[in-house]
Simulated scan of single mutants.
Amino acid sequence: MWHGELVAIHIAEKGRAPMQPLEQATLIAGVGIEGDRYATGRGHYSDFPDIREITLIEEETLIALARDHETSLSTDEHRRNLTTRGVPLNHLVGRRFRVGETMLEGGRLNTPCRYLDLVTGKSVNDLLIHRSGLNARIVEGGVIRPGDRISPA
């Protein structure tokens, strides 16, 4: 059985706004992260129906970009809310898992798009195919912090 860790938390108050790091975040079931663009309906993709209460990406993806493609993408650039370590995100579609005291359910794999290239000024879209993270819903809310354990529910 796997166990991982929450590396970083980021939110943006609206689409294209810079991602802001948080030392802790309040997750609201059925809504999103308190203060985040998708919880308030101010995200770039808010008008498109989807499971997007919270988004996650693997730190291992960022390491592979740097190692294999000499392209850096920092935790405040990738536009996902949570950066994880040791978590098999691609295998969590339709599955519940815990992040600290909260429970999430994987919705769908995140599809990379040219919007990320536009916002970052880097050509990462094609490099993130099948590694762009996970969109999830918040089943049980609560407070999370970097360093929290991530595990199957």
Rank of each mutant, 00 (worst) to 15 (best):
F48E: 14
P21G: 01
G86H: 09
R52G: 15
T26L: 14
L118A: 12
I138N: 07
E13R: 08
L128W: 00
T26K: 15
G94R: 14
V143H: 04
G4A: 03
A25D: 07
E140L: 12
D117L: 09
G35S: 02
L27H: 09
R145H: 13
I51F: 05
I33R: 01
D117E: 14
L116S: 07
L109H: 08
R16G: 03
G4R: 03
R98F: 00
G30M: 13
P152D: 01
I54T: 11
L82P: 14
L134G: 07
R108Y: 10
L27G: 09
A12G: 11
E13P: 13
R149H: 06
D47T: 13
R67K: 15
E105Q: 11
S151N: 02
R67Y: 10
G94H: 14
I57E: 10
R145Y: 03
A66T: 12
L128Q: 06
T120G: 07
A29F: 02
I9T: 06
R145T: 14
S72L: 12
E53G: 02
G100L: 13
P18M: 02
P18K: 12
E70F: 08
G121L: 07
V139M: 13
T75F: 09
V124S: 01
Y45H: 15
T71A: 05
E70Y: 04
T71S: 01
I28W: 06
G35H: 05
S132I: 00
D76S: 08
I54V: 15
N110P: 00
R149V: 15
D68P: 02
A64W: 12
T71F: 00
E77V: 05
L118M: 12
F97N: 09
A64S: 15
E70A: 13
R80S: 10
H69F: 15
R85K: 15
D68G: 09
G41A: 10
R42D: 11
G30L: 13
L82C: 15
D36E: 12
G142M: 01
T75H: 12
G15P: 04
G107Q: 11
L89A: 05
P88A: 01
Q20V: 12
L62I: 04
E53D: 05
E34K: 15
T120R: 05
R137S: 15
V7R: 09
I150H: 10
A17I: 07
S132T: 00
I28Y: 10
L89P: 05
E77R: 03
